[in-house]
Design a protein around this nucleic acid. Structure first.
Length: 421
RNA sequence: GGAGAGGUGGCAGAGUGGUCGAAUGCACCACUUUCGAAAAGUGGCAAGGGCGUAAGCUCUUCGGGAGUUCGAAUCUCCCCCUCUCCGCCA
């Protein structure tokens, strides 16, 4: 959500934003609706003022006759007010619907583009792994080593189901424990949030109303969130924080649920795209200051890069193009890991910032040094998703004999240097 | 699942039809006092919107919505949320 004043003063920016994000949104329609809303408000407010003024005279009327006269007059005002109010309410409803569709404005540095194919590489790290043998894909490697059972996963869950087993599970725990230590050292407070959340949190973060299709829902009309970002942002909804407690850095750990409704033909095999997985997620709330937001955005993205570097997996970082940005996102980096068998990079992490788009919806404010109330800024980034990370990890570290070399930083957490020997 | 209680400002907590945006306390801010602090005293202190260069004027908001009324924090109905007890389950 953006400030209507800002929208009115920068309508061409909004129009350009919608175009860049490939979102169908008509600013002029919102402005017209807003004009209508303002006119109608003036009308009802005048009548209300009249009514409010009459309240006192009625209460303090000197005689019953005076009183009756005043009341009779007010009956007329009341009728007029009711009529005006009806129109205003209808207009307000349109207005609110339109307001929820206003896209946030992408940063200047965001490239134009039509799809994720137009994302621009800004960094590449590590040598693409070279093999002296024909490398296998993660499905074959992990299945052979008893780490993964897709067949039974599909028997039990259906399409996109999986069982992670044995060293597959141990490897996840090793990654989680290592990540806890790694991100803990960067001042993140670990949080296990509720992932079954009320609808309001999804509106607040910007996943609704547009993303309904991609979410699982309970019979109580709650939702299974697709990321810990949702509950972690909802955590401080309707709160007024003090500037001293900012920035808030949270490392959420949670299961994540995604229907992948729009991805039917995509990534149909293996652990790349699944309906349920676990993820460590970085969420930051900071002061409403663009430079600060930038600083933390670079920081959270760099954290994940460092983490990947410490594992020793080749990756690249891309800046997402306009069409690949969500409604509320100003700028986003994706980190993509090298997947040898597919001979391409696959997304593992997404770091984005929103300015006050989310906090405005969630009503997360703070009192700054001058005592003024301001909406905080919010940003988030994947720390590490499991089991998706295993795809690259296993494929890059596979050995000719079908075993997997465990990255040295994980050995203390995993307990062995090789899987499958 | 059954029964009950309740949702008021940053927090706690009064208020049951009119002068209530709302007592009081805490917190917070300013000043006085102090070498400084604490304590004490005095004063200030809700948010959001509209009009206005400004001073200011004005509207809305006591969980949300609908209703009764000239007038609702206060009465009625529906919904949401929280808590307590019992039951059930882990």
């Amino acid at each position: 959500m953006l400030d209507i004043k800002f929208i009115r003063e920068n309508r061409e920016l909004i129009a350009a934003a919608a175009k860049k994000k490939h979102i169908d949104f008509d600013v002029e329609r919102l402005i017209t609706t807003d004009d209508k809303r303002r006119t109608m408000m003036t009308g009802t407010e005048k009548l209300r003022a009249e009514q409010n003024a009459a309240n006192n005279s009625i209460a303090s009327a000197r005689s019953p006759e005076d009183r009756a006269k005043l009341i009779a007059d007010m009956k007329v005002v009341k009728a007029a007010l009711e009529k005006e109010d009806e129109g205003l309410k209808a207009t307000m409803k349109d207005w609110q619907n339109l307001m929820l569709q206003v896209p946030n404005i992408p940063d200047m540095s965001v490239p134009d583009g039509d799809s994720d194919a137009d994302n621009k590489e800004v960094k590449a790290w590590g040598e693409k792994t070279a093999f002296a043998f024909e490398p296998k894909d993660h499905i074959e490697i992990m299945t052979k080593l008893g780490m993964l059972d897709l067949e039974r996963g599909q028997k039990v869950h259906g399409f996109r189901g999986y069982f992670l087993m044995g060293d597959g599970v141990r490897l996840c725990f090793a990654i989680w424990n290592y990540a806890m230590k790694f991100f803990g050292a960067k001042n993140f407070v670990p949080v296990i949030p509720p992932i079954i959340v009320r609808k309001i949190n999804l509106f607040g973060t910007g996943y609704l109303p547009q993303g309904e299709e991609d979410m699982f829902k309970t019979q109580d009309n709650d939702y299974l969130a697709g990321t810990a970002e949702v509950p972690l942002m909802g955590m401080h909804a309707d709160e007024t924080l003090s500037v001293a407690e900012l920035p808030k850095r949270y490392l959420g750990f949670s299961p994540c649920y995604r229907r992948e409704a729009g991805a039917h033909g995509k990534d149909v095999r293996g652990l790349i795209r699944v309906n349920e997985f676990y993820k460590l997620e970085q969420v930051v709330l900071c002061e409403a200051n663009h430079e600060m937001t930038i600083k933390y955005h670079e920081e959270v993205n760099r954290n994940t890069e460092e983490f990947i570097e410490s594992l020793g997996i080749p990756y690249r970082t891309v800046i997402n193009c306009g069409a690949d940005l969500g409604l509320g996102q100003v700028k986003k980096y994706d980190i993509e890991l090298w997947v040898p068998k597919e001979s391409k990079y696959r997304e593992i992490s997404s770091a984005s910032y929103f300015h006050d788009f989310q906090t405005r919806r969630l009503n997360i404010r703070y009192r700054d040094a001058d005592g003024a109330l301001r909406y905080a800024h919010s940003l988030n980034s994947t720390a590490i998703p499991t089991p998706r990370i295993l795809v690259s990890l296993v494929e890059n570290f596979q050995q000719p004999d079908g075993t997997i070399k465990v990255p040295p930083v994980l050995v203390p957490y995993f307990g062995k240097e090789v899987i499958g020997s």
